[in-house]
Design a protein around this nucleic acid. Structure first.
Lengths: 129, 129
DNA sequence: CTAAAACCTCGAGCGCGGTTCAGGTCAAGC
DNA sequence: GCTTGACCTGAACCGCGCTCGAGGTTTTAG
C-alpha cells in the first residue's frame, strides 16, 4: 500500500516550503507543476507528498537562479515521461555549469569586498576613532 | 606628480568594464558615481582612472547582488568623506554576511541538484539507452 | 445557524534593473 | 567644409518574478 498521508492545504504547503500561497498559485498557473494539483470534492487544492517534494526541489532550482521558464521546460520534459530523461539530465547539467560559474564569480567579487573591508579595518587600527 | 593618464570615453569604459554605455549613463543618473563625471570642453564624458576603478568595484558589489539602492548609499557615504568610514565599513560587513549566506544556500541547493543528476546518471548506467 | 477564516479566480499593479527610442549635438577623417 | 559615427538628454518601455485587490465561495468553530 502506498503511503496515503493526508493531503496538505495550500497554506500548509506555504508554511512548509517558505513560499507564499500567492506564489504557489502563480507557479501552478505558470506551468511549473508536474501535474495539476488535485481538488478534492471542492475548489480547494490538495497537495500530495509528491507535489510537495517537487515544490521543494523546484525551489532549489529557483534559489540557484534557474529562470522560471527553464523550470517550466524541465517540468514539461518530466511530464513527457521516460523518453525525456536524457534531456532533463542535460538541462540540469547545463545549469550546474552555470551555477558553478556564478559561485566562482561571486567568490571572486567577495574577495575584492573582503580586501576593501581589510583596508578599512587596517586604517581603523592605525588611526582609531 | 599624479599619473595623469588620458581620460577614457564612455565606450572605452564600457569595453573595459563589460557594462554597456547605456548602463554607465544609467548608473550615473542613479547616483552611483562618487563624483559627477568630468566633461572636458564639451558635453562628452571623460572618465578618470579613479572613476574607472570605482566602476570596477561597484560592479563587484552588484555581481554579489548588492541592490543599486545600497550601492548608492555607499557612494553617498563615501562622498561625505572620512567621517563616514565606520558606516561604510559596516555596510560592507553587513553585505559580506548576506553574501556568505547566499553562497551557502546556493551550495546546498547545488548539492541537491547534483544528487538529482547522480540519480539520472545512475539509472542511465543501469538501463542505458 | 451564523460568522469568521481560508480558500477561489481573474486581472491589474509593482519593484528592480536596465534598455530603447526620438531628436538632436559634436568631433574626426577625408 | 562635410559627412559619418560617437556622443548627448529625457522619457518611455521592457522582462522578470512575484504581489495585491476585487468580488465571490467554502470550510470550520462556536
Amino acid at each position: 500500500m502506498p503511503t496515503p498521508t493526508t493531503p496538505l492545504s495550500i497554506s500548509e504547503v506555504a508554511d512548509h516550503t517558505g513560499l507564499t500561497v500567492a506564489t504557489l498559485r502563480y507557479y501552478e498557473r505558470a506551468g511549473l507543476m508536474l501535474a495539476p494539483i488535485h481538488r478534492g470534492s471542492s475548489t480547494h487544492r490538495e497537495y500530495s507528498a509528491e507535489d510537495v517534494a517537487w515544490i521543494v526541489f523546484l525551489t532549489k532550482l529557483r534559489s540557484t537562479a534557474l529562470p522560471i521558464a527553464r523550470v517550466r521546460d524541465y517540468a514539461e520534459l518530466a511530464r513527457q515521461g521516460d523518453s525525456s530523461r536524457a534531456d532533463r539530465l542535460e538541462l540540469l547539467q547545463r545549469h550546474r555549469i552555470t551555477v558553478a560559474g556564478q559561485l566562482e564569480s561571486m567568490r571572486t567579487s567577495l574577495d575584492a569586498i573582503d580586501y576593501k573591508i581589510s583596508l578599512y579595518s587596517e586604517s581603523e587600527r592605525l588611526s582609531p576613532a
